[in-house]
Design a binder for these strands. Structure first.
Lengths: 152, 152
DNA sequence: GGTGAGACTTGCATCACGCAAGTGGAATCG
DNA sequence: CGATTCCACTTGCGTGATGCAAGTCTCACC
């Protein structure tokens, strides 16, 4: 968890980054979600992360409800597991723009073995709008004094 | 750009985090993508970010090809704009798990005004698999010595 | 010319991360 | 049973990152 929060931000992405925006956090979550990792020494060895940093991250995940401490390690909660979507989004972006040798990792559907991608879906017309066609608007929890910018 | 890279990681998410994993980075990108922000002082004022940190971030984004410097400010490239998907993913996660007052921001389709969500799509069966049904496998750019974990 | 705004730069203090060594407990082996 | 190994951290310290405040330079406007 970030030492100094993004307090002026009325935005769920900022809330999310307050929990997982520190160095190593999303890589720990990635290993938990997609490699089924639970044990301290596995995270430490595989990531090459310092044990004091890892301990602090895991403690923060437990406090934030992303993980629970068990006798055999740290288990993701549903809250924590659903950060998998963020990992997939990062991976797909990285595949497209930062993977000169092609995608190192492919996400597949456990049931049928098909390749899984993220897509946008419009509830109105059913299209899959490009990012350039998506605009941000205030929602039910909006605080007019704390908008990220010209969200109009 | 992270001072110390995730060199042992053969994973596009890690490559992405090397570019945008620092404090403030994704919030800057968010404001650029969804609020059309380009000017230094707007980023600085709206985010409450220190000018030396902001200058360093923007310089890094230009070097990484996420933005281009223009007479009127910093313009996103396509590479930079497509990080919008990551912002949407973070926002949706935050809406679900960290927005007690409801979603502050709703993403809508510019054309029809419908609400936009991210969904998974399986290329094999057409379903929208839950995260728990998605597994990570080595892809074309995989280096067997540098896998995030039991990616099998 | 004076003023104000924008785009940064600089200097310094505090915090975050990395490294290495260490501790304590549990399990295994001879 | 003692020695060894492994695991889960903790501790102390140095380096790098961030935040704050003041500053400089340039440009536009009056």
């Amino acid at each position: 968890m970030l030492g100094r929060l993004y307090e002026r931000e009325n935005c769920s992405a900022a809330r999310a980054l307050e929990l997982v925006g520190e160095r190593w956090s999303l890589l720990i979550i990635r290993n938990a979600v997609f490699a089924g990792m639970t044990r301290f020494s596995d995270f430490e060895r595989r990531l090459g992360i310092a044990p004091n940093v890892l301990a602090k991250r895991l403690e923060g995940f437990v406090a934030a409800g992303l993980m629970e401490e068990r006798p055999d390690g740290y288990a993701l909660t549903r809250k924590g597991r659903e950060l998998g979507t963020v990992i997939v989004a990062l991976t797909e972006w990285g595949d497209r723009w930062a993977a000169p040798d092609g995608p190192p990792i492919l996400f597949t559907h456990d049931d049928c073995g098909g390749t899984v991608h993220l897509t946008t879906t419009c509830d109105g017309c059913g299209d899959a709008p490009d990012i350039a066609e998506i605009v941000a608007n205030p929602g039910p929890g909006a605080d007019p004094d704390r908008l990220p910018g010209r969200a109009s």
